[in-house]
Each structure stands twice: as C-alpha cells, then as structure tokens.
Design a protein around this nucleic acid. Structure first.
Length: 561
RNA sequence: GCCCCCGUAGCUCAGUGGAUAGAGCGACCGCCUCCUAAGCGGUAGGUCGCAGGUUCAACUCCUGCCGGGGGCACCA
C-alpha cells in the first residue's frame, strides 16, 4: 500500500515541469504512516524536502504535486496540511484489498520476501554447560527465537544455532568442582577448588556420578558415569552431558528449539582450529612475543593486539571462536547474527578482526550482533544477584514455574534489547492475572467467543457479503482497527530490518487495545446481514493477525480463557 | 583513563528528522437486563538528564558535560 503511494508520487514528480522543480532535484520519496487518524492514512514530506532546493513555497509545491498525481481508486482524498505535508486518505477499496489479503494469506499474512533465499544463521543462548540457564539466558532465548521467526517472515532461510563452549577452562573448573563434591568436599571446606562452582546442582551431579547413572543430551550419545572420583575424564564428560540435558529440558519447556548444536570441542577434533591458526599465520598478521603467538587485531580496528596461543601452548577462546565463524561463512550463511549479552561486546571487534585477517572475502561487518543488557531480578525489594559462582540465582525454570511460559516469553521480548530489564518477581507474581500477555490473548479469545455465539444463534460468517459491504465500516473504532491491521506487513518488515522483536509485542498490545475498544463500543452480531458480515470480516482478520503475531513471539493464542 | 549502551509521567517502558511526546502499572471518577468486566470510557500526572550546534523542522542527528550499566586478560 505504501509502495503504491510511492509509485504515484514518483509518477507525479516525473511530470512536473522543470520551472517548478529542476529535473536534477529528486530527493528520496518518504511516505509515512500518519500518527493521527485525522491526518489520513499516509503522509509525505516531499514538498517540504523540495522547497529549499527548488526555492518554492512548500504548500504551493504540494499543490503542484497533487495536480500531477495520477488518479487511483485506492485513494479517497488527499489534502495539504501544516507546513506542506500531503496527506492521503485511503478508499474503502484499498481497505477491502488489504483485508482480503489477510484471509487469502492467513497464517503467512504480512510476510515479505526481501530476504528470500538468503542463508542466515542466528546464534543465541550459547550457554556454557556449567550450570542451569538463568534469566539472562531466558531473555536471550526469547529474543533470539523471536528474531529468527521475524527474519523468516521476510523469506530468510534461518538456522537456529547454539554454540557450546565445552572445551575451555570453565569446564575444567566444573569438573574439579564435581570431583570435589564426589570426594565429600563442600564449598568453603579445605581443598575446595578455587573459583569452583558452588551451586547445589554440583552436589546433584556428584551424586548421580557416584551412582553410575547415564545421561544423554538431545543430540548426544548416552554418557555413563564411571562412578570413580579419581576418573577425572569421566567426571568431565558426565557433568557436561548432565548439564546439557538440564538445559535441553529448560529450553523445551520454554518452547525454544535449535537446528544445530555446535560443539567447541568439535572445532579441535575436526582440525578447524588448526586450519584457522595456519591461515592466520599465513596471512602475515601474527607475531611471537614473550612465548605467545599474537594476532595484529589492531590493524582491523581492535584496541590492542590479542593472544592466540598462550605461552603454555593452549589457544585462547578467541581462536576457536574465529574458526567457528569461518564455518558459518563456509556453510553458506551470508548473513550471521549473534545474540549476546553486552558483557561480551568486547569479542565483536576480535572476531571480526580475525575473519578479516584470514582474507577469505568475508564482508567487514560479518557477523551482525544483537546485544542485550542483563536482567536484574528483584525480589522482596532487593536485587537477586545472578552469578554462576554464587549458589543462588533465578533460573529460567523458576520463572516459568512462577508466571507461566507465555508471560515469561512475552515479558522478556517486550523491551528493547539494549535497555536494562528489571524483572520484579513479586510484581510478576502479583500481576499474573493482569499481565500484558493476557490482554492480547484475551482479545483473541474474545473474537473466538464471538464466532461461537454466532453459531449458537444459527448464523454463518459469509466473507463475500462482508467484502461487498466494507464501506459500512465507518465507525471510528473500525477505522482505527483497519489502520492497525493494514500496518502489520510494514511492522514485520521494519522489525526484521531493525532486528527488534519488541516492536511486535508493542504492536500486538496496541492491536488488542483497538479490538477491546471496538468490542465495548459496538455489537458485531447484528441483524443487518450486510453490516454483520462486514464486522465479522474485520474481527476475523484481527484474530488472524493476533495469531500470526503471537506465534512469532512463541506465545499461545488460546480460544478460550 | 579509554570504548560501547542507557537517561522520556510516581514505577516499568514505547516513540523509522516532522504536525498537540504516548502506552501499561499505580492514583482518582464512571460503565455489565448487551457477543467473556482478564474489558471499556474519563481525570490527574512531562524543563524528553544538562548545555551548545546542524536543520524549514530535533525526544530523534553532532559535540561537550552530569548520572547509571557493561567492557578494556596469555578468562569465557
């Protein structure tokens, strides 16, 4: 719809005589949604933009443009407003066209194709298998999953990927901690490893290990514990498998699945790390200093050069990280997005520098990042510290049990990623019945209820009759609802481009509000068959769009509440 | 000290350079012989952190301050 108006303006500008606007002045045409319904549906500031270079009065220019505007049955009225805006009021035919699209496309209404066929990988959560998933991971899971869905609406072919740092120092500490517990040493006792993990779950793992249990993660083979406290390798494998399984369970409860679990350790066994190191050395961007191997990342915008291989011969985490991103490129993903906490933002310049140094033709901005701030959890007016080393922190599992999956997902995705998030447990609990998510779901359930009533009253919904009578929808609440519905495709495009799922949550709240207002102001099941079906079309379309939107966020759309 | 992000109603947050800055929660006043009141209508509540600059037009862009968070490892 917006595109069609742009086309009309383009045509109008092309026919303007040079003495009105010189031919070399052709600013980008900007067509925007109006904020106020009184200003119509769309507006353009083109006359304001042209006024200065053309040295003309903007309102006179606007008139000249309107005079040159080709006729279209999509537009009911145009007007010049304020300093020189041109407002467009859409016709009933235009609304009709858009509403029928909702029915024609159904669950894929609003989808676009600007990303058609572009291989894309979104990496998110990527929690180390050293403990349960905490609220921060929950934010990342909700954000990443919604982002993937959003990109898919634009045709991107997206893979959800989870990277396991299962080969590093943290895993070593985990294994040491479990081993200590298996030997009966507790946090604080003499012999407890420095910076060991103190959570109770460590004790659970030790118990299971001693009991010679078997566990397996979703994609992994079964790992059986040897039960011998001196068998460090068995402890390490068992602890990792155990925690991966725990994380799988949490993610499953959260309704988030991954297409690929990529293990850091596999980068070593596949020789990818070795390959990357060779490539970097071959690039001439490395040097030895104080027994370590360094990469000149400063040549690619980093603050300082980074160590690749420590003096003890092992690699820093950043080498496999670069190797991993090379595989993303090699696997054909031309777009890569990493969802991470802002505390990892230092890695961005390093990874990008490493990829550039390799000279593989990978674009400079690869990969993209969506950084999110940490979640501050409040309980009883006090902050609950989130720390893996501390024993107590709020897990994803806790949150789901307290306020329900739908509420947690909707909440966590409803704020901009880079704003801090205060999750007040008490408030979330107290508001469990006034939660924004219920507001949206209720709108959906209400429409479902209307159609149940319709059936009870012996009526049927005739879409064709409704479409022929769309002009009857002239109430302000109806206009508002139609405006909002027809914005949905643009919303998806904007949110996907900006990588901002929170826009969807806000849109749904607004749309639900429009529906509730309409519901309270007017009766849908009226005697007049024409008006009745026109209204039923409108609310059925609303139901469809709410469904589509909630699905993107991983929130259910109940038919009854 | 250097780098990144945030500062908008009492609280939690929206706001692609445009017209009178918006929601929710909280507060106050109303609305169920009517498709679910988990709802609706209304009132109150603002120096958009501060100061400059760019622009026809700045909450939005630029610079500098102030306040908050996060990074600046041969940790991940």
């Amino acid at each position: 719809m917006k595109y069609q108006i742009e086309q009309l303006l383009q045509a109008a500008l092309a026919t303007l005589p040079p003495d009105v606007v010189p031919a070399d002045i052709r600013p980008e045409i900007n067509v925007e949604r109006t904020r106020d319904a009184a200003h119509g549906d769309f507006a353009t500031n083109i006359a304001l933009q042209l006024a200065k270079p053309a040295r003309k009065n903007p309102r006179q220019l606007a008139q000249a443009i309107l005079d040159a505007l080709p006729a279209s049955d999509l537009i009911a009225k145009t007007e010049i407003a304020g300093p020189g805006f041109i407002n467009f009021h859409l016709s009933a035919a235009a609304y009709q066209l858009e509403l029928s699209r909702v029915f024609d496309f159904g669950p894929v209404y609003g989808y676009g194709k600007r990303g058609a066929g572009i291989g894309t990988v979104v990496e998110f959560v990527s929690a180390n298998p050293t403990g349960p998933l905490h609220v921060g991971h929950g934010r990342q899971a909700a954000l990443g999953d919604a982002l993937v869905s959003l990109l898919q609406t634009q045709g991107y072919e997206v893979s959800r990927e989870f990277y396991y740092n299962d080969a590093g120092v943290q895993i070593h500490k985990l294994a040491l901690s479990v081993q200590a517990r298996a030997r009966g040493i507790k946090p604080g006792d003499a012999g407890w490893p420095e910076e060991g993990y103190a959570g109770d779950y460590i004790g659970d793992i030790a118990e299971e290990f001693l009991a010679k249990s078997s566990v397996h993660a979703l994609d992994g083979e079964a790992v059986k514990a040897s039960g011998k406290p001196d068998d460090f390798e068995s402890i390490r494998k068992f602890a990792v498998a155990y925690l991966r399984r725990e994380q799988d369970i949490d993610l499953q409860k959260f309704g988030v699945h991954f297409d690929v679990y990529y293990l850091e350790s596999s980068l070593y066994t596949d020789g990818k790390v070795e390959e990357t190191v060779k490539g970097l050395i071959g690039s001439g961007k490395t040097y030895e200093n104080e027994g370590a191997l360094w990469l000149r990342t400063t040549e690619f915008g980093d603050d300082k050069d980074r160590v690749m291989r420590k003096s003890d011969g092992t690699f820093t985490y950043f080498v496999p990280d670069v190797a991993y991103h090379v595989t993303k490129w090699q696997r054909g993903f031309r777009k890569a997005i990493n969802v991470q906490g802002t505390d990892h933002h230092g890695t961005i310049s390093r990874v990008r520098a490493g990829l550039q140094a390799l000279g593989l033709g990978i674009p400079e901005g690869y990969p993209d990042y969506v950084l999110h701030k940490m979640v501050k959890v409040m309980r009883g007016g006090e902050e609950v510290k989130i720390s893996k080393r501390a024993g107590s922190y709020v897990t994803v599992r806790d949150l789901i049990e307290w306020v329900g999956r739908d509420a947690v997902r909707f909440f966590l995705v409803s704020r901009k990623a880079d704003s801090e998030f205060v999750f007040d447990i008490d408030l979330a609990l107290a508001q469990s019945e006034e939660n924004p998510v219920y507001y949206v779901q209720y709108a959906h359930a209400r429409v479902c209820s209307v159609f149940r009533q319709l059936q009870e009253k012996g009526f049927t919904h005739e879409r064709d009759i409704g479409e022929r009578n769309i002009a009857l929808l002239s109430e302000p609440q109806e206009r508002a609802l139609i405006r909002r519905l027809t914005y949905f495709p643009e919303l998806l495009e904007n949110a996907a481009n900006a990588l901002e799922p929170h826009q969807v949550a806000h849109y749904l709240r607004d749309l639900a509000g429009d529906l509730h207002t309409y519901y309270n102001a007017h009766q849908f099941i009226v005697d007049d068959v024409n008006l009745r079906n026109a209204r039923l079309n409108l609310v059925a379309a609303t139901r469809q769009v709410i469904q589509n939107g909630l699905k993107l966020l991983g929130v259910s759309a109940p038919e009854k509440m």
